[in-house]
Design a protein around this nucleic acid. Sequence first.
DNA 1: AACAGTAAGGAAAGCGCTTAACTTATTAAC
DNA 2: GTTAATAAGTTAAGCGCTTTCCTTACTGTT
Lengths: 334, 334
Amino acid sequence: MKPTIYDVAEKAGVSIATVSKVVNNTGHISEKTRKKVMKIMEELEYQPSSLAAALTGKKTYTIGVLVPDIANPFFAEVARALENNARETGYSIILCSTDYQLEREQEYLELLLKKQVDGIIIATELKELKALQKLRSRNIPFILFSIDHLSLSAHVVTTDDLRGGYLAGCYLLEKGHRKLAMITEMERPSGRLRLEGFKQALADQKIELDSNAIINAKSKIEDAKLAAQKILQMKERPTAVFASTDLIAAVFINEARKAKVLVPKHISVIGFDNTIYAELSDPGLTTIAQPISDLARYAIQQLLEAIEEPSMPGRRIMLTPTLVERESVKDLTR
Amino acid sequence: MKPTIYDVAEKAGVSIATVSKVVNNTGHISEKTRKKVMKIMEELEYQPSSLAAALTGKKTYTIGVLVPDIANPFFAEVARALENNARETGYSIILCSTDYQLEREQEYLELLLKKQVDGIIIATELKELKALQKLRSRNIPFILFSIDHLSLSAHVVTTDDLRGGYLAGCYLLEKGHRKLAMITEMERPSGRLRLEGFKQALADQKIELDSNAIINAKSKIEDAKLAAQKILQMKERPTAVFASTDLIAAVFINEARKAKVLVPKHISVIGFDNTIYAELSDPGLTTIAQPISDLARYAIQQLLEAIEEPSMPGRRIMLTPTLVERESVKDLTR
DNA sequence: AACAGTAAGGAAAGCGCTTAACTTATTAAC
DNA sequence: GTTAATAAGTTAAGCGCTTTCCTTACTGTT
């Protein structure tokens, strides 16, 4: 059987309180006793039960992470970055992939509450604000990751999508493109913001984005294909396309090739996210990079702060994305 | 504050034992009392602490999952499938991504022990058998996922890599290819097995695989590029290439295009894994599909059985991969 | 009427730990 | 030499539950 603190105490001839103090480095313990206890712990391969500790100490050192789909490279990267940061501070992560289903989101939140996680990072686009209400009333801190809600005063760590779209727009303009199109996920706030930013960039140059140059598509292969075809078949084809995710952009490049339209020779493409798709597509995809590891670092840091200080008022951290240049955009100015 | 079983008991005018029985559906409780208690629980939004339950009941309903890199699409899919299956049976998952580092693996195992997970699924290629020894001595069940160890009598759920390689070989032969090459990860057992199976298929037809037609490469973009170039520059170029992962295959296709060698017109490619890379590459990649969701289902099922019945002898479940045909292999026979 | 059998519920121990409060022993201060 | 402060440990309560063993009150049997 797994040895308990009692076994250690007995064998070392001290009280369990002493052992506990050695383990947690608290209180006053002589070097001699500490050594002795340590030795016994080694011998017995004693491992404190964090379960029991949590029951008293009030912390489980576990945080829940809610993502819509872990198989999506963006969230996979996010999960990895979060996990890394959490590990460094002694926390572990319970991963919940909701598969974009609301009820599952609800289910998972309940579960996490039951498991008494110390905090939650939510990267799913929740519609159910009342779920959050519950977290709030239970006083369990949470961070909205890469999503935001106007109606909510919560902790938020997100990419500045608006600025990202603006960045993309500016870059294309700078490269001499004037006839533009965008494929974006209109049902997602981030998709809409990216579009807004993009429009803004054009507007600054007195250029208007034709409304049928805006194609709505989910970040799914099939959807993206259709959207790509729509653009490729336009009578007046744009010289550059801004895709709101790398997946969409990658699919666009493939579709273009099939239609004998070469990227970047005949048409330029810029993506968003900087996932492995961007690196893997041919030509390499110029894209707006989300600062995933920074986002993760801030999210964890922010969450830990909120755990220590639950009354902390909501804080919004917005990180600026950066442009990663590869080969998918042609410079028309020279 | 979170309500406890005491709050419920008091408000319902019963003992905590009764509440516990209602919650767990054990013992003899009258319909009337049950209703009453239920109602109070609703009112108070009572949520039993699984922590406290675990401390007595002995189960945490949590399982640990160790993967080398969650950002790798294969493992992302695995994690997702495992999580799905676990959820259905009321378990949740602590995800640990070791980043291919041994020490981290060790660290995580300790952590999982501390957290008292009910079982562990290990999908990292561990070198440290002594870590497993510890699990064994602690009597905590584990499953090796997609890896195996001759020296070990453990529970194993894996793809039949040998057969997968064989399948790839047979398919290429069937399509009339005789001059073949393979890019594989020699330092991984699965990479070696895939090669073995491939060789076997050729041997069955009295064809030998030239030893310099076997290129060693890790499943990383850089490595894969180099390997691809090597093959593309051969004086006598093979007509078909078997890549031991989809990533390698996808990179190969891109490199080939850069070298003006078209797939499948000039050279055929077959991959392994059937991850999103296969779907996304252009042309679509014909590949050997790992039965990920079946693997996951068996792994969880197997693990739960082992949790119930820890003395169960090691069992090896090997699932046969299947071929998914897309467009990257040319039929030379017609 | 006496008995066993069963249904309903409660008392209390214990899971493995933390921590506040307390007891000694030791040292410092004047 | 007395007091105060500090160091080193211990005692014991309590975290929120499960579970074993009881008690009590019925019901049915002979």
